[in-house]
């Protein structure tokens, strides 16, 4: 079997807040094969973005290991580490408004990475910037414009060009479409999928829009309060969720189809996601889970394989033990 492109083992990220510890990512293991799109879903505060950022060294991990093509990534990123990995791993950010420097032109933003991380001369860089502008659906008239002159969708295109111009292997897309209008979301998703195909990218697609994640990704990982509760093929998870939290999440997702909505079985939804400062012992979902048993309040379930077939489904739930 091929080595996975990204192999995350027992990754943990805690933030210290005075006497408290926020366990944003807690003992997460996930491997991503080359060429795959893995969707990472979960509610706000589940630790999705922190996982993405820690993966790329933007936040320093507390514990655990991350392997990229079999070699271990550093715990503390120094300038030379960023320099080394910038060409392999990149990130597309959620908010196309705050993630672009308002004092740089679109051309400068897109070309900055090339200036920093490549040996190309000025005219080659200029050529590449123009190529990428076109690739992401903008045109050369846009080169000298500043971010405020663009719409949200266009800004996200700039963000995509900036991330991909170094032709990385692996890109973390952190809610790339959540800030955009419905009609524009599809444009950006299509662009990402198309670029993924032509460049052979591997993507971690973080989002809370389940339908979009199902549409985009090959596999889906469901995160709840800092840990992964279910991993498997997106379609399979969507139509046959195993973990009660996944079931709740998918059952709460409204379908743009009135007939389907009328025949929907009402999901029982209790309470809200607890604070990360106060993570329950045992299963984190136990206090909201309609199937909770005595053991769930004491012992934290770990991810286990529950079905083989063509879908290696991993679920962390005592119901499946």
């Amino acid at each position: 079997m091929n080595k996975p492109l990204i192999d995350i083992r027992n990754l943990t990220k805690h933030f210290d807040r005075g006497r408290h510890k926020i366990r944003a990512v807690d003992d997460v293991s996930l491997s991503i094969e080359a060429g795959e799109i893995v969707g990472l879903v979960g509610e706000s505060g589940s630790g999705k973005s922190t996982l993405g950022r820690t993966l790329l060294g933007l936040d320093r991990k507390t514990a655990g290991k991350i392997f990229y093509k079999g070699s271990k990534l550093p715990t503390v990123y120094r300038a030379k580490d960023f320099h080394r990995y910038a060409r392999s791993m990149q990130m597309i950010f959620q908010d196309p408004y705050s993630s672009l420097n308002p004092r740089m032109t679109a051309g400068e933003i897109i070309g900055e990475a090339l200036r920093l991380h490549s040996d190309l001369n000025k005219s080659d860089i200029a050529k590449r910037i123009e190529e990428w502008l076109v690739k992401v659906g903008l045109n050369t008239d846009h080169l000298g414009r500043y971010p405020h002159e663009f719409s949200g969708g266009q800004r996200q295109r700039i963000g995509i060009a900036r991330a991909l111009i170094l032709e990385p292997d692996f890109v973390v897309c952190d809610e790339p479409i959540s800030a955009l209008d419905v009609s524009v979301q599809a444009q950006i998703v299509d662009l990402l999928v198309e670029l993924k195909r032509s460049l052979g990218l591997t993507l971690l697609f973080i989002a809370h829009d389940l339908s979009m994640v199902r549409y985009v990704s090959d596999r889906m990982a469901v995160m709840y309060l800092g840990s992964l509760v279910e991993i498997g093929r997106s379609d399979r998870i969507f139509f046959d969720p195993k973990h009660p939290y996944t079931e709740l999440l998918i059952g709460s997702n409204p379908e743009p189809d009135p007939n389907q909505e009328r025949s929907r079985q009402k999901v029982q939804s209790i309470g809200e996601i607890p604070s990360q400062l106060d993570i329950p012992t045992g299963c984190r979902f136990a206090n909201r889970c309609p199937h909770a048993m005595a053991i769930c309040h004491d012992v934290n379930p770990v991810l286990r394989i529950v079905s083989h077939e063509d879908d290696k489904r991993l679920v962390a739930c005592h119901l499946y033990e």
Binding site: V182, Q187, V189, D190, S211, Y215
Partner: peptide, 19 residues
């Protein structure tokens, strides 16, 4: 332009072009 989740239905999103 919006994904739906009917079982078995394979669909392609068609974005609305422009703004």
């Amino acid at each position: 332009a919006m994904p739906t989740n009917r079982r078995g239905a394979v669909q392609k999103l068609t974005p609305i072009q422009g703004t």
